[in-house]
Write a protein that binds this DNA or RNA. Structure first.
Lengths: 232, 232
DNA sequence: CGACGCATTGACAGGGCTCAATTTAAGTGG
DNA sequence: CCACTTAAATTGAGCCCTGTCAATGCGTCG
């Protein structure tokens, strides 16, 4: 039996195991396969045959979709505790996105049969998976609306706030985004360009709302960003 | 017992009942509450307390999200057979979208308890719900990418093709969209404006690719639209 | 320390939104 | 069945936001 000590936190907090008796966790985890992903490496490619779905144990992954001519949209940043690629189990197709590690990361993967067995033994498992899916749908809908009706600077502000809430860490200066994120990343996340993002961050830097450097952003004044993203 | 005859088709085709023994359908349907929605009426409002989820039995619904100042984004058009508002059951929150009938429509709704009972009795039910959720996620991701990287006319072309595949009916002239859809609708669906949509459709009309009138669109040459949406 | 990748900034242009004025078509009621 | 009302669609003019291109600066890592 091997619940790796260092993940007990992620595991106990993950919605995937909500309402599942702790003594069954070991069994569930044993049926999956753990995998280490180095910084910048890819866990799976968009278009590859989808054979397993994953729980992120450590680190962060960027889920993105490509569009000819080097254009890319970042669909989601996922944290430890999240389930990804459920499509592999329930639609048996190809991965619709690419998953790339933002830093060193680890994940545990189950193939279709394992998940199906788990569901039939622990009915709650399917419900927990549904909760993840529904959360994803809601976030996508919200971001779709933003992309459809708001202009760029607002979208960037909202993106920053969303990422801050999910992956921010308090420091002396303010709240720092815990992973490396470039102007290009933010552009791909907001449906913009690295130039516009750069200009915008630069502007906010001058106003003292944020501090930013190479692949690093600290939010000094979240409130200013919130009101900027909301006021008329 | 009452499986309404006229819906047996929708029911037997709906993914919701895949792999569920037919003799259990009557039981499942009996636990829901049927509801008629007149053309243009609203089944539920964004922000209302979400108390039940629905299977669309007949007609079509438009799921949209509002954004101050009268702006609106159409998140999805759903057909008979689709499940909506699963959020009501699995997150017990508020509806994230508004559902409006595009013509006369009918739906059957189950509250949280009913769905939970059904899942515990028919484990397959949860899996089927997951499939719906995953389909939605994939479509949203794809449209998010489009909105992020493609320009308006292409998005309109793709939207038309997507709607055509889902709700098109062959006629003498070509493939007609089966429900009333205005320029404004198409604009809200593609993140554009009714003016741009009007100009674009007008242009395509002159080229003979489509024919369009008041809330009515017939696609004469789908292939032209496909290549327009794909070429360089 | 050099080189590469990321970020900044300016100049420019154009896609698409906005606003306004008509035109067309669908209902509606007498 | 026609006049009237109202909502949808069309079209033009103007301009602004933001993408594009190019040049330069800077920080980090090998």
């Amino acid at each position: 039996m091997n619940i790796p000590e260092q993940y007990s936190d992620t595991i106990s907090r993950s919605e995937l195991f909500a309402d599942i008796p702790p003594d069954m966790l070991a069994d569930i985890l044993d049926r999956g396969r753990r995998q280490h992903i180095k910084a910048g490496e890819i866990l799976f490619h968009e278009g590859d045959h989808a054979d397993r779905c994953y729980l992120v144990l450590k680190g962060r992954l960027k889920l993105s979709k490509l569009h000819g001519q080097g254009k890319e949209a970042i669909i989601h940043y996922v944290e430890a505790g999240a389930v990804i690629a459920a499509v592999a189990v329930f639609k048996g197709k190809r991965f619709p996105v690419t998953a790339r590690a933002m830093g060193a990361a680890e994940a545990i993967g189950w193939d279709r049969d394992a998940i199906m067995e788990l569901i039939s033994e622990y009915a709650q498992f399917a419900i927990n998976l549904l909760r993840f899916a529904i959360d994803r749908i809601e976030e996508l809908q919200t971001r779709y609306l933003e992309l459809a009706v708001e202009q760029v600077e607002r979208r960037i502000a909202r993106a920053l706030l969303r990422i801050m809430r999910q992956s921010g860490r308090k420091t002396g200066e303010g709240i720092e985004i815990e992973f490396k994120i470039s102007r290009q990343d933010l552009a791909d996340y907001t449906g913009s360009t690295l130039y516009t993002v750069s200009r915008t961050l630069s502007n906010w830097g001058k106003r003292g709302w944020i501090k930013s450097g190479r692949q690093r952003i600290v939010i000094i004044n979240p409130h200013a960003l919130v009101s900027f993203s909301e006021t008329d």
